[in-house]
């Protein structure tokens, strides 16, 4: 796949005001973004994702490392690189509230050096696509939060840039508008051949929209993988087995030896095994132990895990790895 953004060895440190101590907000971050994909840039608060986004947008100068956007090194040719990227960083705060919907679109197009004639058709299309046509003469401060958010994305689209960066695109939106924005973003990639980078805490949105995620914690990348791979990786191993009786001591000891992470809970007439398998085939070892005393299996459930849980696990494991 064709790469449109290459981030290599990005570093950024800040000096704390009071203690004068250096904080490594971003520490040697490298990843690529493919043309036509939706990439999720995730991380807990203070992980360094906003700093990374702002460096990609050319709003923050990195201490070291490089950012290449569509073949242009943004540190050397910042303005040229900005022709290929646009962003919605603060949602509705990126707009002029005392201008109308259409005036905002006109103004931001002009600010990129485009004439009204050049963008007239595009503005009309965007107003229709984003269902803002009826509100085009309405002041932005009179629009709902959802409409403001849609307008902010439309403004970013207007730039004709190949890459659009969105920071929390569904924050504060009601469920219906949230889904509407998701559909819009999907169509932007599919119909308009754009590439989107999303930073969000809404894991539902990430799971639904993103092809791949880069998870950052404490300024470092902890995971860079496809969403489906992460889901598969975590889901395939998690099983809940309900037994129609209790395990014998021998069986219990045997299982604990093979699966130290095993969780065994008992009820009066049945018991439950919760187990994370390293390999799918290990389930046969489990069955062998159960067969020893013909223990009746009532049900086997593969635990469903959503992306939020995966995210929490990855970040937790990353934190434990750092402290350990």
């Amino acid at each position: 796949m064709d790469t449109i953004i290459e981030v290599e060895g990005l570093k950024k440190s800040y000096k704390k005001r009071r203690s004068k101590e250096f904080v490594h907000a971003v520490d040697d971050v490298s990843f690529t973004v493919n043309r036509g994909e939706i990439l999720g840039l995730l991380g807990p608060n203070g992980a360094g994702k906003t700093t990374t986004i702002k460096m990609i947008c050319g709003l923050l100068i990195p201490d070291s490392g490089s950012i290449v956007i569509n073949g242009i090194n943004s540190r050397r040719k910042r303005l040229d690189a900005l022709r290929h990227i646009s962003a919605v960083l603060e949602g509705n705060r990126n707009l002029y509230w005392r201008l109308t919907v259409k005036e905002n679109l006109d103004y931001f197009a002009g600010n990129r050096g485009l004439s009204r004639k050049e963008v007239r058709v595009q503005i009309e299309d965007l107003l229709k696509k984003f269902s803002l046509k009826e509100k085009q003469h309405e002041l932005v401060n009179r629009l709902s939060r959802g409409m403001q958010q849609k307008l902010a994305i439309a403004v970013a689209m207007l730039a004709d840039s190949e890459v659009i960066l969105l920071d929390e695109p569904t924050l504060g939106l009601d469920v219906e508008t949230g889904y509407e924005v998701r559909d819009l973003l999907r169509s932007i990639v599919k119909d308009d051949n754009r590439t989107i980078i999303i930073s969000s805490h809404d894991m539902d949105v990430v799971q639904d929209l993103c092809n791949r995620t880069v998870i950052i914690d404490k300024g470092k990348i902890v995971t860079n993988d496809k969403v489906e791979n992460l889901l598969r990786l975590f889901q395939v191993r998690a099983y809940t087995i309900t037994l129609g009786g209790l395990l014998s001591d021998q069986q219990h000891q045997c299982l604990l030896q093979k699966f130290p992470q095993l969780e065994y809970t008992t009820d009066t007439i049945q018991s439950t095994l919760e187990i994370d398998l390293v390999k799918s085939e290990e389930i046969y070892d489990l069955f062998d132990v159960l067969k020893m005393e013909n223990t009746f299996i009532e049900s086997i459930d593969r635990s469903t895990i959503n992306f939020e849980q995966i995210f929490m696990k990855i970040v937790k494991e990353g934190a434990e790895g750092c402290t350990g």
Binding site: L79, R83, S86, W97, R112, G113
Partner: peptide, 18 residues
């Protein structure tokens, strides 16, 4: 304060021209 300065700074025309 409004949050639009960053958008101006992202213009490929350069904020000084604006």
């Amino acid at each position: 304060m409004r949050g639009t300065l960053e958008q101006l700074c992202m213009s490929p025309m350069g904020v000084w021209r604006i």
